[in-house]
Nucleic acid binder design. Structure first.
Lengths: 149, 149
DNA sequence: TAAAAGATGCATTTTAAATGAATCTTATTT
DNA sequence: AAATAAGATTCATTTAAAATGCATCTTTTA
């Protein structure tokens, strides 16, 4: 059972931006990629999608960068992961080119769909704010070398 | 979000065997692979694991074959999927070679672990028997061309 | 107008999973 | 005993999705 690195990176970007909130320092994709030591190219695409979904605001050009578009409290983890992972195929029968011969008389799809809903419903309990609560925020700022100012 | 074909095939084998229960006809891996139109080689490995976990009984030699080791009611879907998918890496920080720099101050792992538990807990509600209930059994026997006798 | 940022499209690499193939082991039947 | 038919095992190969890299385009600001 796994979730794409794309989704993982999406969350990392949001955590970075949330941890750096209330800071005057401008954040770029390059910086985020360097601090996390992950591929800048991949991160560009991740940012592009987050931006397309209005979770973050990306500005081009000199002094451009990325920042959160809403308060961390308003970014729900379940909804976010759902939206990124939508279109993924949990098992063959969820996919477009399903070849399973018993599909019509198989109850598995129903069960798995329900289980997946439980998974997301659980994540629905949390928002981005829960990820930078308490001591976490300071710790994240430190590990990610986000200047406090 | 996805689950391996290995797990999918495991369920298909069990469904086949459950649907063919109370039938005198001996079932071989070859037959199951043919009916589902899937790789016999892969299925062999699937069967091997199901057999190692005592879910099914495999006998070699002439007139050998595979059959369920317990009543379908006793094979829990959640437990089964859990056992096959154990060791899979939901996201990087679940894995052995986790490189994520914020791991120590990140709450995501906890949240995802909880969500995964919800997923399996949901599947825990069902057993193999639920997959061959009512009309399903007859339908499965027909699609899979299992002789009724 | 130069520099610095993100956007985009295409190519390549990586990796895990799936599949194939060959051989080994076990059991049964003749 | 020998032949046959089943699963078990090991190693090699293929596949497909995801990730990454690269080049170029677009936008913004100093």
């Amino acid at each position: 059972m796994n979730i794409s690195r794309f989704t993982d990176y999406s969350l990392r970007v949001l955590i970075y931006l949330a941890a750096a909130k209330e800071t005057s320092h401008i954040i770029t994709i390059k910086e985020v990629a360097e601090r996390y030591q992950i591929s800048k190219n991949h991160l560009m695409k991740v940012v592009q999608e987050l931006s397309a979904n209005n979770h973050i605001n990306a500005t081009r050009g000199k002094n451009g960068g990325i920042k959160l578009n809403t308060a961390p409290e308003n970014i729900n983890i379940g909804q976010l992961v759902r939206s990124i992972e939508q279109g993924s195929t949990l098992v063959e029968c969820f996919g477009k080119d399903n070849q399973c011969v018993i599909t019509s008389s198989c109850q598995l799809k129903r069960m798995f769909a329900q289980a997946m809903e439980s998974f997301f419903d659980c994540l629905d309990q949390y928002t981005l704010a829960d990820l930078i609560k308490g001591e976490n925020k300071a710790e994240l700022r430190q590990v990610l070398m986000i200047p406090i100012e």
